[in-house]
């Protein structure tokens, strides 16, 4: 049985003339220990899948099952012990007036964990920051360091599933490599399951064994990493994405 099972998920925002049908019947399943990627352009609904899964977007139709059990709405504390999310913008997702210590202690207090101090220090060590960062504020950190804090915050509850919404797209290339390596290592060490959303095919191909291409709130197709690398796609849309991600190609007709 798959760890995450999403069946015919529908998400509708607004009503009447402002109705936006963001997801139109999206299904996917992710096995335990697997890393699953979702790619698509802006507005394709890729982030909405993650947000709906963790209760940040309204589920209008379909089912979300974790470990074979349908999730409750609102999600209970046990859900967040198992599923955590890392957001795109490390500048916006940390409270500017909370120290790193407070950011990391809060989930521990909510879920009634013991040895909080030791856990905070351990979490900082694991993401490669160290204890020295404990009493700093987010503005004293660089973008890459902030994203490490966001990852530490997600990991501190020892979840099984981490939902990653464009975790590196706000970072420089060299910092992106560091954060991707960190995510890879943590998955190995802890047997985590990832669902990673990105617009960058190369990042998804590097991180995920299987992926899904989305457009206009629908699934275009599902591929394995090997199929993507072999360009074995049946859909024009995926092919266009692949061509576009290889950089600019000059129209031969315009060559002088």
């Amino acid at each position: 049985m798959a760890l995450i099972d999403i069946e015919d998920l529908e998400v509708v925002f607004g009503s009447g003339g402002r109705r936006v049908h963001a997801l139109r019947g999206v299904s996917l399943s992710v096995e335990e220990g697997e890393s699953f990627g979702i790619v698509g352009e802006s507005g394709s609904g890729k982030s909405t899948v993650l947000r709906a899964a963790c209760g940040l977007a309204p589920v209008t139709g379909g089912r979300i099952l974790i470990d074979g059990k349908q999730v409750t709405s609102p999600r209970d504390a046990a859900f967040y012990r198992r599923v955590q999310m890392v957001f795109q913008d490390p500048y916006a997702s940390l409270h500017p007036r909370h120290t790193i210590d407070r950011v990391l202690s809060e989930p521990l207090a909510i879920h009634g964990f013991d040895r909080r101090e030791a856990r905070v220090e351990q979490a900082l060590d694991e993401v490669g920051l160290g204890k020295g960062f404990r009493f700093r504020y987010p503005h004293q950190l660089s973008g890459g360091q902030r994203q490490r804090v966001a990852i530490a915050r997600a990991l501190i509850l020892e979840p099984k599933v981490i939902l990653l919404d464009e975790p590196t797209s706000a970072l420089d290339a060299s910092i992106q490599a560091e954060v991707l390596n960190l995510l890879d290592r943590l998955r190995d060490e802890r047997g985590l399951t990832y669902v990673l959303v990105s617009h960058d095919l190369a990042v998804v191909s590097h991180m995920c064994e299987r992926l899904m291409v989305m457009q206009n709130g629908q699934v275009v197709e599902q591929l394995t990493r090997e199929a993507l690398q072999a360009r074995a796609t049946t859909k024009d849309y995926t092919r266009n994405l692949l061509t576009a991600s290889e950089g600019f190609t000059r129209d031969p007709a315009l060559q002088t």
Partner: peptide, 20 residues
């Protein structure tokens, strides 16, 4: 060279990625 090297590639499978 470091900047070029640390980009993930669709076809490459270098793990971990070289960092700068």
């Amino acid at each position: 060279r470091g900047l070029i090297g640390c980009l993930p590639k669709i076809n490459g499978d270098v793990r971990p990625l070289p960092v700068l």
